[in-house]
Amino acid sequence: MAEPSHGPTPKFIVGAGRMLVFDPSDEQSASGEIKDASIHVDGSNRYAVLEQLAGLLDKQTACFVGKGRLALAALQAADRAAAASIRIILEAPDALTSADLSWAEQSTILQRSDILILTGSATTSDSAACARLIKSHLPRATLMFVYGAQDDIARDRPALYLEAVQDFLRRGSGFIIRN
């Protein structure tokens, strides 16, 4: 598989399982500190939410979260992971081409991983097209439109985001049945 051209530093969250978060707003922070951008409108902290979500994973499961243009980094990291079970969450993926993803079809890890691709129904970027592109390379992935969200889904629609991600982490592929 292709190596990332430059290595974005993921945020590493340990709950019962492990969660690696690739978020462009972290990458832009030289100190690696969490920027204000991670604070949601309701006052909650994005990472506090993710830590809570990581608590839903069991010890054998690793979860990779990639946001925006770092969706590819999350996929690449997942492809190198040794965990027994892998969950991947891609939030409003952006700036991807078919060439970036051609390797993914040969990745046995990605082809058997549970993948949730989130895009806002009111996106102002290319995220819906990128989401479709990823799904065309990884047909088992679930493409989800979060109603009313633009490109920061967790911030725009925190309740809907939490509902979807929580259910996905808790139930894996069984998530496709809602109740």
Partner: peptide, 12 residues
């Protein structure tokens, strides 16, 4: 696709 909305939710 799945749809996570305020009034309507569908997973597939």
């Amino acid at each position: 696709f799945a749809w996570e909305g305020e009034h309507f939710q569908y997973r597939a």
